[in-house]
Design a protein around this nucleic acid. Structure first.
Lengths: 125, 125
DNA sequence: CGGAATCCATTATGATACTG
DNA sequence: CAGTATCATAATGGATTCCG
């Protein structure tokens, strides 16, 4: 536990795994971003902002994120029903951490692409 | 493009997606960590360090990582054959970025768990 | 030894339709 | 409107076996 602070990722209930899994989920990250930009959205608005997501899958991500305390779900007992989502402090904090990684990506994507081209040249072409 | 630097993650060939997908892969992150600690390992050593991975899946991760320029694959034309892996500069750099996220996880996991307990109490119990 | 090939189980993802 | 239920399919994950 001295070199890098990554710890026991091999353990099933490792903290890092929890987060890495969520970050690896395409839709969750999109929800994070959209909510950061739009502050507060209803289910359908969210769905419209996130191109191509189906209600089922969106619901799954939303539920998981709510469970982890990343977003709030505000229910209004009206008819037709209204439900709004927004980020919690924790959610905003996570987005910041993720955007660090996104920055790394942008800084290094050209090198990655270069490596891929080289690899593919060697294997196939 | 002003608030947070995340960009066009909705685009299929978005840089961030590339990296996020890789980071979301359990085994790749483990390979990153193990190689950071052990510097250079043979295929079987790697497999032994990473508990529970099968050769097929390990090979897949290794190939993908090699293709992205994250690891080097050194082949020795001996018999029995010997192949060794180590991190490239890019791979080390990525691990650093990932460990930032891991730190975030450790800092916030208790809050996440608290949120989960609360959520589960409300839903089921 | 380092994988490639094969096969199977499980899960993830999605389209579609329906309901409180 | 905000989901849930159902069904179909695809993509992984993994066990196992075999080969250069």
């Amino acid at each position: 536990m001295k070199t890098i602070r990554v710890g026991n990722i091999f353990d099933q209930n490792c903290p890092a795994r929890t987060v890495l899994d969520r970050v690896g989920d395409k839709w969750s990250v999109m929800v994070l971003i959209v909510l950061a930009e739009q502050k507060r959205l209803r289910f359908t608005q969210l769905k419209d902002h996130i191109n191509g997501v189906t209600p089922k899958v969106l619901t799954q991500s939303l539920r998981a994120m709510e469970r982890d305390g990343l977003i709030n779900r505000h229910i209004y007992a009206e008819v037709p029903p209204r439900v709004e989502y927004d980020l919690t402090k924790l959610g905003k904090s996570l987005l910041k951490a993720v955007s660090t990684l996104a920055s790394w990506s942008e800084d290094n994507v050209s090198e990655i692409m270069k490596a891929r081209a080289k690899y593919d040249r060697g294997s196939a072409g």
